[in-house]
C-alpha cells in the first residue's frame, strides 16, 4: 500500500495503480474530468501510463464552459 492525497484527502491505495484504475475504482467517467498530479495536468492520453507514487498529490475536477 502507498499513501497519496486525492482532492485534499489522504488515501491508501495499492501499489502500481495507474490513473485510469484510480478513476475506475471511484466510479468516475474518464471523459468527465481533468487530472492533476503534483501541480501538473496529466493529459488523458497518458493516464494509463502514469503509476501513482507515494505522496502524490492528485486532483481531479470538471470542465466549466459558462461565460
Amino acid at each position: 500500500m502507498i499513501q497519496i492525497t486525492i482532492n485534499q484527502q489522504l488515501e491508501n491505495i495499492n501499489t502500481n495503480v495507474v490513473l485510469t484504475e484510480l478513476l475506475d475504482n471511484k466510479g468516475i467517467s474518464h471523459n468527465s474530468v481533468a487530472l492533476v498530479v503534483n501541480q501538473r495536468i496529466i493529459p488523458r492520453s497518458q493516464w494509463h501510463e502514469y503509476v501513482c507514487q507515494p505522496n502524490d498529490n492528485i486532483e481531479f475536477f470538471s470542465a466549466v464552459a459558462g461565460g
Binding site: 467517467s29 468527465s32 481533468a34 488523458r44 470542465a63 466549466v64 464552459a65
Partner: peptide, 12 residues
Amino acid sequence: CLYPADTYIENS
C-alpha cells in the same frame, strides 16, 4: 490537451 473534444460538460 486539457479537455479533449469528447469531454462531458455538465455545468453551465
